[in-house]
């Protein structure tokens, strides 16, 4: 264990936010491409909402459940990694709320708060976002790995929170890597859909 802060947390954070923005751009660009293709070949004028309705397909209850769970867990893993200790973001962290931090169920309260507030938004938008893509069963099966990486990331964060004020670079890197991989898995259906669309 070392007391040094060598892990470039802000850089990792930037990369992760960058990936999410890229995912969003791909998602938007996918619609632009499809709209262009359909416009060129359509017999009649149509509105954007018609196209959205035409594109939507049911992805399956299992997949939706996994995705809802994964995105919610992603938020928890993200919050645990960045807000558990003051190592990355300074004053804004878990230990700023001593009543929660000193409670034996403090981590549970922390995780619960993260899930409930943005989790509702996730439940509203995530299944709908994926419904515009033809996601193969194989790709869906691969996304099953996401919760595994997320749980691993959470475990690393909890460990780092537990040993604070000491720290461990290896666990930081492992936490970041697991979070990054899970983000890539979460965005994979969208990115794959965009790549396939770009071939047309």
């Amino acid at each position: 264990m070392s007391q040094t802060e060598t892990v470039p947390g802000v850089l990792w954070l930037s990369i992760m936010v960058g990936i999410m923005i890229i995912g969003l751009i791909f998602h938007m660009h996918y619609f632009v491409r499809v709209t262009d293709h359909v416009k060129k070949t359509s017999d009649r004028a149509f509105q954007r909402k018609d196209l959205m309705a035409a594109l939507r397909i049911h992805q399956g209850s299992n997949f939706n459940t996994v995705m809802l769970f994964s995105w919610s867990t992603f938020l928890v893993a993200f919050a645990f990694l960045y807000f558990m200790t003051p190592d990355v973001l300074g004053t804004l962290n878990y230990f700023s709320f001593p009543q929660v931090a000193s409670d034996s169920l403090g981590l549970l309260y922390f995780g619960g708060a993260v899930i409930i507030i943005p989790g509702i938004l996730i439940a509203l938008f995530v299944p709908q976002s994926y419904s515009y893509y033809q996601i193969s069963p194989q790709m869906k099966q691969i996304t099953l790995l996401t919760p595994v990486f997320l749980l691993a990331s959470i475990a690393f964060s909890v460990y780092l929170g537990t040993i604070y004020p000491e720290t461990n670079d290896l666990y930081w890197y492992m936490g970041y890597l697991a979070l990054m991989i899970s983000l890539a898995l979460l965005l994979a259906p969208i990115i794959k859909g965009w790549i396939e669309e770009m071939r047309t």
Binding site: H58, Q59, G60, S61, N62, F63, V66, P137, K140
Partner: peptide, 21 residues
């Protein structure tokens, strides 16, 4: 009837999703 959904092995939520519903 081949499933278009994820196979969770231990528990399946909802109905089996086949191509074209």
């Amino acid at each position: 009837l081949s499933s278009q959904d994820v196979d969770l092995v231990v528990h399946q939520f909802g109905e089996l999703l086949a191509f074209g519903d």
